[in-house]
Amino acid sequence: MKPSNPNTINNTLCFTLGDWNNKACVRNKKGNYFLPPEQELGFELKCKYWFPPTFMPYLQHPLLTDIDKRIKQKLTANHLIHFLDYTTVLEHKIVNRSVETIIHGGLSIDTPEEMRSAALQLYTDEGYHALFSYEIAKQVAEYYGIQHLQSKPLRITLLLEFIDSVDIEHKALAWLLIGFVSETIIAKELLKVTCHTIVSSVYTILRQHLEDEAQHSRFFAEVFYYFWQNIETDQQLLAAKLLKDIIFIFSEIDKPWLTKSLCSTGFSAAQACAIIQPLLNKPAAIQRIRVGAAPTLMAMKRAGVFDNKYNRLHFKEAGLIDD
């Protein structure tokens, strides 16, 4: 099947990041990754947290509902550091590796010039996201006298193991699909978080990151649409199977890290296990995936992935779609 002109596939496909020169945070919002002065930070921490507690579902466990404010604050700091360390590694080792397949022609189809140009812009964005994630994580870790980037986040390990398991002739395809899933799974609810909820500088970088990621999500959805329309049926079937596995990886709970985080605030290993176990419950995990991956599944539907009955059945049996 020959690649089509993107304009003939769907006139909404433009493969751009909008007004990137003026809107991308790497271009016009530099220097916002420093914590407030100590006195100001101390004042903020009386009524704010390091990370939104509403996005830490384990805090709803009965063992945690009435914990001391200082313990809850430390848990939000641990979560923020882990989230930012994960982001740093994800952007460098995963997302930008995926973007390279677009920029340098690693795919089996022709890549439109405008797609390559936008991919280079996205590559630059991700490098900057890694930078400010690293800088904030480092400062919060120093504030608490702890180390960061000491262990590889579970999802990163699983993604790299997944890539290793894919046959060499399909690795470029797998990298593209990982980038697609990563960039379309966006915690849109984080955009509802206000500066009254979390430390001001943390709020700033989360907000800027998500604003960029909204553009990246649209771009990757268009890339996926174009790609899906231009590959053979056998590649489509393989891609659908890979996508299911990738989506599940991105929903994994990092049990080793979370156990360590809880134990660092005084919980026993048995208590930590009891707190984490509900998150591993299969129905709860499937529901979490369906909510988090809704934009990904919608982009797949739009591209026609579920027009094939085998793909539709594959995802239905996994619990990811209803029909």
Rank of each mutant, 00 (worst) to 15 (best):
V199T: 05
A119C: 06
I146M: 08
S200Y: 14
T54W: 09
K192T: 15
A130G: 07
C195A: 13
Q147S: 12
I231P: 00
M56T: 09
A303Q: 02
I186C: 04
G304K: 05
F220Y: 14
T157E: 10
G292Q: 13
I163P: 03
Q73C: 06
H82L: 02
A130F: 02
K152W: 10
T233H: 08
A318T: 02
E189D: 15
L262I: 03
L159S: 07
K69S: 11
H216E: 04
K138C: 09
F83C: 13
R155P: 00
Y49W: 15
S151L: 04
K282R: 13
A119F: 01
C47A: 11
N230R: 01
Y33G: 10
I286L: 13
S133N: 06
E232R: 11
Y123M: 13
H216C: 02
F43K: 15
I146F: 00
K309I: 12
R288P: 03
Q287N: 13
D245K: 12
R218G: 06
C25G: 07
S261K: 08
F248H: 09
L41T: 02
L237H: 07
H209I: 08
M115D: 10
W20Y: 14
I102E: 05
P153E: 06
R312N: 07
K188E: 13
L41A: 06
G304E: 06
G145H: 01
Q271L: 04
G266P: 08
F51S: 03
T87W: 08
K74A: 08
T233E: 06
Y86D: 10
L158Q: 06
L238R: 05
F219Y: 11
M298G: 11
V181G: 03
L190A: 07
H104F: 14
I247T: 07
L131V: 12
V193F: 01
G106H: 08
E114P: 04
L190W: 05
K93I: 13
